[in-house]
Simulated scan of single mutants.
Amino acid sequence: MSSSLRRGTLAASALVLSIASLSACAAGNSAQTLEVKPDNAATSVGDIKLQNMNVITQPDLDAKGPAVITGKLFNNGRKDQTLRAISLVGKNATVKITPASGSGQLVVPAGGSVVLGGKGNASAVLPNGREALKDGEQQKLSFDFSDTGAVNIGAFVVPAKSFFKEWGPEAPSSAPSQSASAPAQAGKPGKPGAEGSTGAPGGQQSAEGKPGAGEPSQGGQQHAGH
């Protein structure tokens, strides 16, 4: 084999190894973030990095209710930063930010990260998602951090279906059923001494060792235990 052919073979092998290494790194980064599609938006400004950002709406087009912003926030600096606000560029929409603790400000710790969306994580909710968003479009978001300032990124708007189902917003609560709201007819105490009455005076029940009025029945105790 000539020297030029050997050099060409070695160069091709090095290129294959480089591509394989990059693919492995990409898979690792995706697994460490939200386990969502690796081609989702990411950007960095100063010490702040945003990755895998999405806006997830209700699963049905005609369903009213909130939408949520999901993704991961990284702080590569030595100082904690507070996420003060998120705005939808060009839209008059309010985003409610809540930390995982349920109260206070959302702080991205120095050298750490915060996940937006999903059970037990911090949340960014748009109460009226369908009024401002359309599935399939890319919405520009602006994140306002206490030290870095504005960090802008384009996020995909997707319905809470398939892969995004677990990360989506809560479904709107349904109206109470008629049977649940109707007053109960059964269980009314019968008149003492009336024919066909199932209720007996509380004193007689207590004397026989049965629960008197105002005490939970055995059935109620079992129900509470379930």
Rank of each mutant, 00 (worst) to 15 (best):
G190K: 00
V45S: 13
P127I: 04
A171L: 13
S146N: 10
G209H: 01
L83F: 12
S113F: 08
G209I: 03
H223G: 03
F156S: 15
N128G: 10
A122Q: 09
K49D: 10
G28M: 08
D62C: 04
S179D: 14
L50E: 01
A26E: 13
S21H: 06
A14V: 14
S217Y: 05
V151D: 04
S181L: 10
D60K: 08
A184H: 07
A67D: 01
P109V: 11
S217C: 07
N92W: 06
Q58C: 01
T94R: 08
D47Y: 08
E195W: 11
S174C: 00
L50C: 02
S179K: 15
G193I: 00
A93M: 03
G136V: 04
S142G: 06
A171V: 05
I97N: 08
S181F: 03
N75P: 05
T70N: 01
E137W: 13
A132I: 05
D80S: 11
G202D: 15
P211K: 09
A42G: 04
G203Q: 11
S103Y: 02
P159S: 04
L61G: 11
D144K: 08
Q32P: 03
Q58Y: 02
G104E: 07
V36K: 02
Q222M: 04
E215N: 02
K96F: 10
A124P: 01
S142V: 12
Q105R: 14
S21L: 14
P59M: 00
R7E: 15
N29P: 03
R130A: 13
G111M: 08
V68A: 10
A63I: 12
K72T: 12
G225A: 15
S21T: 11
E137I: 10
A85K: 15
G220K: 07
G196Q: 00
T33Y: 13
A160W: 03
K165I: 06
S217F: 04
S101T: 15
K79R: 14
S13R: 15
P169D: 03
S217L: 10
L83A: 08
R6M: 08
T198E: 11
N121H: 08
K91W: 08
I97L: 14
Q222A: 05
V68Q: 06
N76W: 09
V55M: 00
S13P: 05
A26Y: 06
Q218I: 01
L5D: 14
L22S: 03
E170Q: 13
E195C: 06
Q81A: 12
V68N: 09
G117W: 09
S23N: 05
N54Y: 15
A160Q: 01
Q178W: 10
L61Y: 07
Q204A: 12
P216E: 03
K191N: 01
S174T: 06
E137Y: 11
A41H: 09
A63V: 11
K210S: 05
V115E: 13
E170R: 13
D60C: 01
S18D: 03
Q32V: 10
G212A: 02
H223P: 00
N76S: 15
I86H: 06
L83S: 12
S162N: 14
T82N: 10
C25F: 09
V107S: 11
G46R: 02
G46L: 02
A171E: 13
T198K: 10
K64G: 11
S101Y: 13
S162F: 10
K161N: 13
